[in-house]
Design a protein around this nucleic acid. Structure first.
Length: 360
DNA sequence: ACCTTTTGACCTACG
DNA sequence: TCGTAGGTCAAAAGG
């Protein structure tokens, strides 16, 4: 694995952000009982945690070319964030979540400094002025051209282009941002999410960038090349056998990637998934890796909020949360034996026999 | 009146 | 050299 310094920094920022967010989530959850607004906040934080892990996995897997998981992926991570872009990269690497970016015609003498995929293209902390828009060959959405607000005043050559991803229609739109030239204007960055002078306003929190379907799709590819995300839960029927009528979520309809917010040892996974129990991570410092053994598709179950090292015990990670999604629907599970002698925690599934909803 | 965005025309790199 | 397509300019439009 050959991480560049910038990639390491970005990965660190993601993980630190997830760490802090998890601490806030735990604090929120301990402030029981949660009202409706509290539940919404907790759900949002939980989703954001999933995103943090997904992005981190992307970044890792993009560098772990030897890993089979990457072979099954369509190299999405190459465009999540690239600190140093190699323009010689073949076009087939320019994909994300099944979307395809046309091979770039070599541009003018612009020095590409960074590329990234984001749902909030205007929350990078700089102030930009739009100076053009262009329909690009074989692209559904026009490309927008921005230059630094201080390009005239301070001779800053920084530019960026924003291209909405063709595959993002129907989901929350995703944008490919290409930055050219470094800022030389010393402009003071504005907090992400704030309106800028140019009127840019990011309506979403900076990191709440991926909707559930997108995350499920991407996570599926990260984890095992699974099929694209299932349809939204609203179209599902019937509810799983294991669903508790006393669901603390008050019967809200969970998203396919809904995760548990249970605080006791039993993690009650929201609909449409059957409840999943996992041991408290406080009893074990190891990662919780479980795979289905009687499913036709072997899938690794990844803790959505767990897997932290013992050094993170300060935030009292009581439970390990599983992404609850059809992609992860367990039939039965066993622990994965590992070559090292670190003990594995084993998740026990409270309901391994009931039928899971069929997703086509 | 001022500022930003839009949009069509023009410029230019590339095959 | 020419056609194509991406990038930029600048007038017009809009807030």
């Amino acid at each position: 694995m050959a991480f560049g310094q910038e990639a390491i920094e970005q990965l660190s920022q993601e993980l630190v952000g997830g760490y802090n967010l998890n601490a806030r989530l735990l604090a929120l959850l301990r402030r029981s009982p949660l009202d409706g607004r509290g539940q919404e906040r907790a759900a949002a934080m939980s989703q954001e945690l999933s995103r943090v892990f997904m992005v981190s996995l992307f970044m890792l897997s993009s560098r772990e070319s030897s890993r089979p998981v990457v072979d099954r992926m369509a190299s999405p991570a190459a465009t999540i964030t690239e600190g140093s872009i190699d323009e010689r990269a073949p076009a087939k690497d320019m994909r994300i979540c099944g979307g395809e970016v046309a091979p770039p015609r070599k541009g003018r003498e612009n020095e590409v400094t960074k590329k990234e995929i984001t749902a909030s293209p205007h929350s990078d902390g700089y102030q930009w002025r739009k100076y053009g828009q262009k329909n690009i060959h074989k692209r559904k959405f026009a490309r927008s051209y921005y230059k630094c607000m201080f390009s005239h005043d301070r001779g800053c050559r920084a530019k960026k282009t924003v291209q909405q991803h063709d595959s993002s229609s129907g989901h929350r739109p995703m944008f490919q941002i290409t930055y050219m030239h470094e800022h030389k204007c010393q402009q003071q960055t504005v907090p992400p999410g704030e309106a800028t002078r140019s009127g840019h306003f990011d309506p979403q929190p900076q990191h709440a960038e991926l909707d559930d379907d997108t995350m499920a799709s991407c996570l599926a590819m990260v984890i095992g090349g699974a099929a694209p995300a299932a349809p939204s839960s609203s179209s599902l029927s019937p509810p799983p056998v294991g669903a508790s009528p006393s669901d603390p979520d008050g019967g809200r309809t969970p998203s396919p990637l809904d995760v548990s917010t249970g605080l006791d040892t039993g993690i009650s996974c929201g609909l449409p998934c059957a409840p999943v129990k996992a041991p408290s991570s406080s009893s074990s410092s190891s990662l919780l890796l479980v795979e289905a053994i009687s499913s036709s598709d072997r899938a690794v179950y990844l803790p959505a909020g767990g897997g932290l090292s013992p050094s993170t015990d300060a935030i009292a990670m009581d439970d390990t949360y599983f992404p609850c999604s059809p992609l992860f629907s367990p039939v039965a599970a066993r622990s994965i034996s590992r070559s090292d002698d670190e003990p594995m925690a084993v998740a026990g599934f409270t309901d391994t026999t009931s039928a899971w909803p069929h997703y086509s």
